[in-house]
């Protein structure tokens, strides 16, 4: 209880409440996340249960249109799948890939940045040059490369099973340099602060100083990058899936849905592509706006 009371009284919550855009973003993001996480409970249909699919229900327009069916609020696709349910399940995949990819790049990036900033010298030089080189490639290119290698190297049935992890790795690996650079910068500042020197005088081991003293003090900006990184990861995943290089067909994400809908976009069945697109935009935009707010709220100079 005390923790909740403290949170509601904090400067962060105060600045949150004062920004209507942020509050709306938070609500939208929350709806997206809840809808995705609770899809098996909330979705009107199970789009992956082939037994329930009936081609007679295919190409139903949204419920409010003249030929609409209340059972398919946002219409259905060529297989007779409910678009709303497909979006909810698709958002699940998109969010899962996004979260895991960010977590992966965060762990790699924070470790590398901390090590480079604290150790300095040659270690710093080598690690940061690697990051620089990677930053010269567009991240989507790296992701496509990883995906291509995985497809070529792995037998197709193995690839099918690990495809999700490949996508997570592909997206995550392209984002770590951002974390590494930021953390290295803050670490360079923190490591010369007197509380770190005090720990060195006592003779605390370097690893322990890095983890217990420096790390907690460089995490603030990481939170911001992670939030903004989440929307980037979701977009990257959608792009990959749209290009057919992403998640397996059996687990369609929002990107996959848009690609499928793309085929029908100009033959009248616009809802198959447009609604997943709107869901993607809502998710990415709300997360991005939250990230922007967090960045400003945590920046003491803008307070």
């Amino acid at each position: 209880m005390a923790a909740v009371a403290r949170m509601l009284d904090s400067d962060l919550f105060w600045s949150f409440r004062r920004s209507p855009v942020t509050v709306i973003s938070a609500v939208v993001a929350l709806i997206c996340i809840l809808g995705a996480v609770l899809a098996p409970l909330l979705a009107p249909h199970d789009p992956f249960d082939v037994a329930t699919l009936n081609l007679i229900d295919a190409f139903k327009p949204p419920a409010w249109a003249a030929e609409g069916d209340a059972a398919y609020p946002l219409g259905s696709d060529d297989q007779g799948r409910d678009v709303l349910s497909a979006i909810m399940y698709g958002a699940r995949v998109s969010l899962l890939v996004g979260f895991c990819a960010v977590l992966f790049s965060m762990v790699v990036g924070v470790s590398v940045g901390l090590l480079a900033g604290y150790a300095g010298g040659v270690v710093d030089g080598v690690l940061m040059r690697v990051a620089d080189i990677q930053l010269t490639f567009p991240s989507i290119l790296i992701a496509l490369l990883v995906d291509g290698i995985a497809r070529a190297a792995l037998p197709s049935e193995v690839h099918e099973r690990v495809a999700l992890f490949v996508v997570i790795f592909a997206i995550g690996i392209s984002a770590w340099p951002q974390f590494a650079r930021t953390v290295r910068g803050s670490t360079l500042v923190e490591r010369n602060k007197e509380y770190v020197l005090a720990a060195r005088v006592i003779g605390i081991s370097q690893l322990r100083i890095m983890l217990t003293h420096v790390l907690p003090n460089v995490l603030g900006p990481v939170l911001v990058i992670a939030t903004l990184g989440l929307s980037n990861a979701i977009i990257s995943e959608a792009t990959l899936s749209y290009l057919g290089a992403g998640v397996p067909q059996t687990q369609p994400s929002l990107g996959t849905l848009i690609r499928i809908g793309n085929d029908f976009l100009f033959s009248g069945e616009w809802w198959i592509a447009i609604f997943p697109g709107i869901a993607l935009i809502a998710m990415v935009l709300s997360v991005n706006l939250l990230g922007d707010w967090l960045r400003d709220a945590l920046n003491p100079r803008l307070r």
Binding site: K193, E194, Y195, L197, A198, V201, I202, G203, H213, P216, N217
Partner: peptide, 19 residues
């Protein structure tokens, strides 16, 4: 031996870990 020497720093705002 190390325990027998200690240091006090100039900046009271930087010499204590804020977390």
């Amino acid at each position: 031996q190390r325990r027998r020497m200690q240091m006090i720093f100039q900046d009271p705002y930087a010499s204590l870990n804020p977390r």
